[in-house]
């Protein structure tokens, strides 16, 4: 990555903590994310990865800590002190959220074109031809044949659904995408194709990505930096290759050594 010197980070998390009653979700997570950078959050199930992602994307309110985001006009905003309409506006224009289960991120009863067009209509597009044009364009970019535009996601395979979900999120040209296990539940060849696609689009559009995964191969392929979580805490972070090739924390060593040799 070629970072511009003195560039302001896009997103800054400081001491993010979430308690579910007396149970810990995630404790004291701090990091900075720059434009076009991909961070992977890895760890076993229950380690707080998804909690962290939901905290960062403003879906659940942190018990402590702060998230600051640099808006398009350069102003720095605290995600939780901005008004709800603004936060929701941010969420559907400048951010994207790719769910592990496409059924959560898509409207299953609405055609692919409608799914992609929804965000555009939400920001005030009122010309059917333009909306359809943008939808067609985006379906092509995620390699969905044009003649499937009027099918509902129900008629799509798992891989296509996931690609449709990505198109739906990217249509407003967001600067930050959150992904929760984007390749979970897909078979290996479909996974490879999806990862290829993601890598291409992310670098083309210079989108910052926070990707949660338990698959170290996904992390290695996609991310520049990596955060390892265990029992709600970030136990190690650094450049992906560095952490994976030379893990310091005992848990990370265990995690890396548990990959089956190809």
């Amino acid at each position: 990555m070629n970072f511009i010197e003195n560039e302001q980070p896009l997103l800054v998390a400081e001491g993010l903590t979430k308690w579910y009653g007396r149970r810990l979700g995630c404790r004291d997570a701090s990091f900075e994310l720059y434009e076009g950078e991909v961070i992977a959050v890895v760890g076993e199930s229950g380690s707080g990865k998804t909690t962290l992602l939901q905290l960062l994307s403003g879906q659940i309110e942190p018990s402590a800590g702060q998230i600051r985001y640099r808006l398009r006009d350069g102003a720095i905003a605290d995600v939780w002190s901005m008004s709800e309409p603004m936060r929701r506006f941010l969420f559907r224009t400048d951010w994207g959220y790719v769910h592990q289960d496409p059924q959560l991120g898509l409207r299953m009863g609405v055609s692919a074109g409608g799914n992609v067009g929804e965000r555009l209509m939400a920001v005030g597009w009122r010309n059917y031809g333009d909306i359809r044009g943008a939808a067609t364009d985006w379906l092509a970019r995620v390699e969905i044949p044009e003649d499937r535009i009027d099918d509902t996601p129900r008629a799509y395979s798992g891989g296509m659904r996931q690609r449709l979900q990505i198109a739906r999120n990217l249509v407003t040209a967001p600067r930050l995408i959150f992904m929760d296990e984007p390749t979970g539940g897909l078979d290996v060849s479909v996974q490879a194709r999806l990862l290829d696609l993601l890598r291409r689009i992310v670098s083309e559009m210079r989108i910052a990505v926070i990707v949660v995964t338990h698959d170290l191969a996904v992390a290695r392929l996609l991310s520049n930096r990596i955060m390892v979580m265990k029992e709600g805490e970030v136990i190690e972070q650094g450049l992906t290759d560095q952490v994976l090739d030379d893990p310091h924390a005992p848990y990370t060593q265990l995690l890396v050594s548990s990959i089956l040799p190809a």
Binding site: G114, M121, A122
Partner: peptide, 18 residues
């Protein structure tokens, strides 16, 4: 409350698409 009415147009979009 927040006048987020994009969804209403999704319904009309679906009508035209179909």
């Amino acid at each position: 409350a927040l006048s987020e009415y994009g969804l209403m147009h999704v319904k009309l979009y679906e009508d035209i698409a179909r």
